[in-house]
Every structure is written in structure tokens, then in C-alpha cells.
């Protein structure tokens, strides 16, 4: 079961990196980055999973909890992802105003 999730994580990251490299449209590039971020968030959660554990809210009925630390980290990672995405969208708007296109060809140029 956990291997299905591991497979999903690796696929999300691979799809994301493929999108960033092959796409020229800026919106698609940033969507690919969001996909990668989803993958890594899922990965943190999967690493914190303990078989049979419940959510770490202590009501007294349960004895096994999942690891709460990765969940706190994911909360941070999600907010950071959102912030970067917001700034990225604004840059894309500005880029469109200047160039009247969303094509971005300089990414792979070194």
C-alpha cells in the first residue's frame, strides 16, 4: 500500500521536472512546479506515516499516532509554495504586458 504512495510521489516529481524542461509556456512551467511541490508535500506526509496511527490530537481514545513533525513541516511548505506561486503569477502578468506573449525561451540557455 505504502508503495503505491511512493510510486505516486516519484511520478509527480518526475512529471513536474519533465514539464519544466519541455514546456515553453510560462503558465505551464509554473503549473509543473506546483505539481512538484505537491509531490514533495505528499512525500513528507508519507515519511511521517506510522501504520495504524491516527491524527496526533490527544483525546485519550487512541494510543498510536502518526509522526506530527512532518505534518507541521508540510504546513510550512504549503504556505511557501503558495507565496512563490503568487509572486510567479505576478511576474508572468508583467512579462505578458511587456512581451505580449507567454513563451519563455531563455530557461535552458546557460
Amino acid at each position: 500500500m505504502i508503495w503505491a504512495i511512493y510510486f505516486a510521489i516519484a511520478s509527480l516529481l518526475a512529471i513536474g521536472i519533465y514539464g519544466v524542461i519541455t514546456k515553453k509556456n510560462l503558465m505551464k512551467i509554473f503549473i509543473s512546479i506546483s505539481i512538484m511541490e505537491t509531490g514533495v508535500n505528499l512525500m513528507l506526509i508519507a515519511i511521517g506515516y506510522i501504520p495504524g496511527g491516527t491524527a496526533p490530537i490527544e483525546n485519550g481514545d487512541f494510543t498510536t499516532y502518526v509522526d506530527p513533525l512532518p505534518q507541521a513541516l508540510v504546513l510550512t511548505a504549503i504556505v511557501i509554495g503558495v507565496s512563490v506561486l503568487a509572486l510567479a503569477l505576478v511576474m508572468v502578468i508583467n512579462y505578458y504586458e511587456k512581451n505580449k506573449t507567454l513563451e519563455y525561451r531563455r530557461l535552458m540557455k546557460w
Binding site: P56, I57, Y65, P68, Q71, A72
Partner: peptide, 8 residues
């Protein structure tokens, strides 16, 4: 009570 909140 919520351990995630306590950590965050």
C-alpha cells in the same frame, strides 16, 4: 491538545 499545532 493538537500536537501539530504545538509543534507549529
Amino acid at each position: 491538545i493538537n500536537a501539530v499545532t504545538a509543534i507549529v
